Simulated assay, not measured.
Amino acid sequence: MKSSADGKKKWALLTEKPAAASGIPNEDELNAGIDFSCAVLESDIAWTPTASDTFNEKTSCQVGNSSAFGASNFDTALTFMRDYLEAGGPAVEAGDKAYQAVRVKGSEVWIYMRESDKLSTEPWEAGDIIDLGGLVRSDNPARVNNDGDIKRRVQFAPQNMIVEKAVLPGTGA
């Protein structure tokens, strides 16, 4: 059965490395992380694997070229909707928490995205598929078109990414 993509991306930002040696987080870690699903601009998400490096891998007997895949590449950038307190200043303990974690160039965080038939408001569960996630380093935030709300776009340098991996069971499972 097909499912509308509307409201189905769930995001988690961890400030500490997942405990598993595989780098795959468990459901407890993801649910304890910063859920910024309502703080990222949907129309400006770049969070996907891109074409891997390729190189010639031709044997002497082959006619024509033969290619092999090398290192994986990723396009990782997000635009954060800024959130402010009524009294003024960033809402550091609320909606602006994820942006605050990445606003300084070189900040290292672990960001994970789930896109499935579940709503973004539903918690992470063991077996959910992480579409793309892992350790990233942030670049300087860019001021983008601020028609509408105040927002900042952050480009990330992927360091250690996982693609299409299942969330591990939590410690209570």
Rank of each mutant, 00 (worst) to 15 (best):
Y99N: 04
T50C: 09
G89D: 06
P90Y: 11
R103Y: 08
G89K: 04
V63C: 08
P90G: 02
D96E: 12
K97H: 06
F55C: 06
S60C: 08
N73S: 01
G70P: 02
A87S: 13
D83M: 04
K58I: 13
E86P: 13
N73W: 10
N65F: 11
T79N: 04
P90V: 01
T54L: 09
D96N: 08
A91F: 05
S66R: 15
E93I: 00
E57W: 15
A94S: 10
Q62D: 10
G95C: 02
S66E: 12
M81D: 10
N56C: 08
A91W: 14
A98Y: 01
Y99D: 01
G70R: 03
D53I: 01
A68Y: 15
R82E: 05
S66D: 12
Y84K: 06
A68V: 08
R82G: 00
V63R: 14
G89S: 07
A68G: 14
F69L: 05
S52A: 10
A71V: 02
A51K: 13
N73E: 06
F80M: 00
D75R: 14
S60F: 14
T59W: 15
V92H: 03
D75V: 04
D83K: 09
T76V: 05
D53G: 03
K97Q: 06
P90W: 07
I45H: 12
G89Q: 09
L78T: 02
G64T: 01
